[in-house]
Design a protein around this nucleic acid. Structure first.
Lengths: 139, 139
DNA sequence: CCGGTGATTGCGAACCATTCTCAGATACTA
DNA sequence: TAGTATCTGAGAATGGTTCGCAATCACCGG
């Protein structure tokens, strides 16, 4: 189901601006920050404001339809929350973000929390690395 | 070896202000942010500025003697880098930060990066959970 | 001891991402 | 169609962090 349909399904209002932000996130293959989302939104609605972009993103995050990431720079990245959870590896050479899913890792995180007496609610993980193979400049 | 001695060992200057910041970090058992470190420094040097506190922290981080953490609020936390690496679990009920070391997790992170073709250089991990036992309000 | 050179400091201004304020525009309800 | 609540754009405000600058300090050769 598309992000905007899920917004409606949850009973939230879907203004033209929110719809636009939903569509941009649905189509995004990268992990854009608010400014990038705002710039993309602008191309289809020259009047949309950055504040409204932030407000739409907050609504989506509050509905748990979108998740945020912090990749070490000081900008919050946004991504549609999919059923298959994944974490990220950031290439320190090219800046590229690689998604990965590792069931063993997921299980281990829960296990560690449980061992400490906690029920895991969420987590943030980012791996930072450089290409290991022959060409360290490859992206 | 104390943090300030390590600074000297690396050939960096140790001004009274930097020395003070080093001592505060060495004694800290929590994960203070810059403002907290500044307030603690003030108690022994009423003239020290917040900017100098930030500058001293930057020197220590650049020397890889101190690491930073982001626990989801918008303040950077500082911690002396010890030989034994650990990650953190943040209690969403009390805000308490629990350190843990899990060799299996460390190995897995490296393995995942390697599988993707990367050499792991660093990572950031924070688990967020709530007490799993009888009393969900316990800290 | 003394001046020179470069690093460090305190202060306040500047920055940047994000949030807030507020008045006007919209949308649903009755 | 009026009433009420929500949303929007614009720009000001905020909070953590960094910068610019003049004053100060530390160390060196003489």
């Amino acid at each position: 189901m598309s992000l905007q349909n899920r917004v409606v399904a949850l009973g939230a209002k879907l203004s033209p601006q929110r719809k636009l932000v939903c569509q941009i996130l649905d189509r995004a293959t990268d992990h854009p920050d608010a400014e990038q989302i705002f710039q993309r939104a602008r191309k289809r609605d020259a009047k949309i404001s950055l504040a409204t972009t932030y407000r739409a993103l907050k609504v989506l995050v509050d509905l748990s339809l979108v998740v945020t990431h912090d990749f070490g720079d000081s900008r919050t990245r946004y991504e549609v929350k999919e059923d298959d959870h994944h974490d990220h590896l950031i290439c320190m050479t090219s800046g590229k973000v690689i998604e990965f899913n590792d069931p063993e890792l997921e299980a281990l995180k829960k296990k560690i929390a449980a061992r400490l007496g906690y029920a895991l609610e969420s987590h943030s993980l980012a791996l930072y690395g450089r290409p290991a193979s022959a060409d360290p400049r490859s992206s």
